[in-house]
């Protein structure tokens, strides 16, 4: 038991995680490229036209995966931040910082593609309904998290302060998810849920899920890329960083 704990903490240290992350990046990047290409193929050439919305519905293939990832990445980020707060490990906070910009990007893409979908179907780019507003709050939570990190000079203090913000913001994620059930919204209910069969044609659903996997693989690849840079930036003064056989060339 104690041995396993020590091992776990060893991989939790930057010097052993740095090379491991470096080896994982190409695999996740390749998986993202393959699933992304397959997803786009299904989205445009396999999935049929929608009976009500015509071709405009194809925005679903970026909108729903981006929205899922924006929520999922927030939870993962908050878990790392919380772990850092409790265990005081260096790697946890770095992982949380590495996820935030990618999560913010997906929140932005969710709002952007949603606006472009809303205009031709609902008749408006934006309404202040509970679903759209809570997703906008999520976007601001990501920005607030990054701003707080940038504002505090002492990295350890910045880690703790931003971790508290990240954990408080978790409340917003179930609000986004259930907003369409709890309140009257312009946004429609979920097409895919755990409690009942999806209300989509099979090929449409497949395309959406494959795109979601692609975004997921992409997120892991870029988060690992970013955490490696954060490690180099923060630990440049340590022996392990100086002894790395890597240079800018």
């Amino acid at each position: 038991m104690s041995n396993r704990l020590i091992n776990w903490f060893r991989y939790g240290s930057p010097q052993s995680f740095y090379p491991l992350a470096g080896r994982m990046v190409p695999w996740f990047a390749a998986a993202a490229a393959v699933t992304g290409a397959a997803g786009l193929w299904i989205a445009f050439f396999v999935a049929p036209t929608d009976a009500q919305q015509g071709e405009a519905y194809r925005i679903i293939f970026v909108h729903v995966p981006a929205s899922w990832l924006s929520m999922f990445l927030y939870i993962v980020m908050a878990c790392w931040a919380g772990l850092g707060l409790v265990l005081n490990t260096r790697l946890s906070a770095m992982m949380a910082h590495a996820i935030a910009p990618t999560g913010a990007m997906f929140a932005f893409l969710s709002l952007w593609s949603g606006a472009l979908w809303g205009r031709p179907t609902w008749g408006t780019y934006w309404v202040w309904d509970a679903r759209l507003t809570s997703e906008l709050v999520l976007f601001f939570l990501y920005l607030g998290y990054m701003a707080l990190n940038a504002a505090i000079d002492d990295p350890r203090r910045a880690d703790r302060a931003s971790a508290v913000l990240a954990l408080v913001g978790v409340v917003n994620v179930p609000v986004i998810y259930f907003s369409v059930k709890w309140w009257n919204t312009l946004h429609q209910g979920a097409s895919v849920s755990l409690t009942r069969a999806p209300s989509m044609a099979a090929t449409m659903l497949t395309g959406m899920l494959v795109m979601a996997i692609a975004f997921w693989m992409y997120s892991i690849a870029v988060a690992l890329m970013r955490v490696r840079s954060i490690m180099l930036e923060r630990e440049a003064h340590t022996d392990w960083a100086r002894e790395l056989k890597e240079s800018a060339a």
């Binding site: 009500q52 679903i60 408006t124 312009l186 989509m200």
Partner: peptide
């Protein structure tokens, strides 16, 4: 002063809807 369409969460090809 403003009318918005609220569509449902069902997506299917035209022949399936028919």
């Amino acid at each position: 002063t403003e009318v918005l369409a609220k569509h449902d969460e069902n997506y299917m090809p035209p022949d399936a809807q028919h």
